[in-house]
Design a protein around this nucleic acid. Structure first.
Lengths: 199, 199
DNA sequence: TGTATTTCTTATCTTAAGATAACGTTTTCT
DNA sequence: AGAAAACGTTATCTTAAGATAAGAAATACA
């Protein structure tokens, strides 16, 4: 990973949430950690407290839950230039109930919880970081809202069609059995829906 | 409604999100609007932009979506001492896709979007309000996260049992056919689940 | 109080989803 | 290149959910 390019990219994708002047940016940069995950490596595992808030510079990750019988259930995906964390665990400081795993070799820029608290508390960045945190949380709140609305107002088939229409990377880059869980159904069921739609 | 008591109650329930000194509180109070809704009145209707963030001092509300065929689908409930808004619409300044309706005579303390922006921009309250907004959004993000996890990892029956165990007011105070939608199923289906569980 | 409305359950029928297994294909790994 | 693992589809069987209608019980209301 090239930290210089990664930082530049990060700064650009932070724009909607926080715009830093040079001074602030320099300070913000001192809190960054650059981490690479090999395919199948974990960013977080259930039972552990998630200590980092991440930005995906390159690659993709899968969020999943482990059922009692050992099967895993995919909850979400994130791709390059998106943020990533086991939010609830990160925010509440409690053990995560999910795993986040790299689906390909992935480059991350991380901010630790401790760093975040320091920035929130510091004179120079505090106000801006509160706003950053607010805008990020609001952004994801809206995404989650859409997701819940889809679950209560649409059938699995309708949800799949919406996903098709959305043109998101998910369909192109994710195995179908992961997408199935994401839609709240089994892989077999998704395969049947696909067949039905073809007609 | 007694605005004095309502303000006192609001301040108490804001504690986890924002603690104001007397000065700040006095200023914050100048932005409050006190509104009462009669049973079945709407706080927001689909198609309109939600201009207020509310606190329920007394009463309860139901969030619902209107399907194409005119049936309504309940998405959520909020009770006294909880916050309430059509968040996505409020945050993104776009028309709401849902309705929020009073289920009984309800007392609200509202902050308009404009007031919120003024407070966020003001010297005295800005920093604190950013934090307030962040903590509120994070709080609801966690709730939504749980809800989505339930949809992808649990069966309707399991979701109902969890709701039973949670001891939330929903079961005691809401008609069953509203709860059914909330769980992502039809009222008939919930009735069958209840019967099954009784055995 | 009496009527209307809402709410919940039950029954029937239809449709779809879950569980499981088998099979061919593709991908991964060494 | 060859073996192993992962992936997607299909078939069968079972179970549960949706749609619809009817009726009883509870509630609202005028």
């Amino acid at each position: 990973m090239d930290p210089l390019k990664a930082k530049y990219n990060y700064r650009e994708h932070l724009q909607p949430f926080a715009v830093f002047n040079e001074d602030e940016w320099a300070l913000f940069c001192t809190y960054m950690e650059f981490v690479s995950l090999k395919k199948k490596e974990y960013f977080i595992e259930a039972g552990k407290v998630c200590n980092h808030f991440g930005f995906i510079n390159k690659g993709s990750v899968r969020y999943f839950h482990m059922a009692n019988d050992g099967t895993d259930i995919t909850g979400y995906f994130s791709f390059e230039n998106e943020f990533m964390s086991s939010y609830k665990s990160f925010v509440k400081r409690e053990p995560a109930n999910n795993y986040i795993q790299a689906l390909e070799d992935t480059e991350l820029i991380l901010i630790s919880y401790k760093s975040m608290q320091e920035m929130l508390a510091c004179e120079k960045l505090g106000h801006k970081m509160e706003r950053f945190g607010r805008l990020i949380a609001e952004y994801y709140l809206c995404c989650y809202d859409d997701r819940i609305t889809a679950f209560i107002t649409q059938s699995p088939e309708e949800r799949y069609i919406k996903l098709l229409e959305s043109g998101r990377d998910i369909l192109r880059r994710m195995p179908q059995h992961y997408i199935a869980n994401f839609l709240g159904i089994t892989p077999v069921s998704l395969s049947r829906i696909r067949r039905r739609i073809l007609v």
